[in-house]
Amino acid sequence: MSEFDYQKIDEILHSRIRTAIMAVLISVEEAEFKFIKEKTNATDGNLSVHLKKLEDAGYIKVNKAFVDRKPQSIYKITNKGHKAFEDYIHKLESIIKNNQKGDNNV
């Protein structure tokens, strides 16, 4: 039985689409809304909701501008978001290790 405290997992990041958004933004310097949508296969509405949640948590920031008279939203991961995502990955890996130890002890 694993002794890992599951409540320590970041609820903000523990969502497939928000994890995917963070994975995209951690790989690039910045990305436009359309790029994130392509990489996550999300719909416009769904993606907007999740981006807002990440922005409210301080994990990403957005810069809105006009390019060729078209509105453009550019997203960037923050230092807080970077650290939170790394911690999240480490926690997932710890759970895997703990589960594997538990399986070996059975």
């Binding site: 497939r16 994890t19 995917a20 994975a23 995209v24 951690i26 790989s27 690039v28 990305a31 990489k39 996550t40 990955i89 997932l92 890996e93 759970i95 895997i96 589960n99």
Partner: peptide, 15 residues
């Protein structure tokens, strides 16, 4: 969990 990590790695590589 392994599937989750594998998914994250794929999105990172792709981006």
């Amino acid at each position: 969990l392994e599937s989750e990590i594998s998914f994250i790695k794929k999105v990172i590589d792709d981006s």
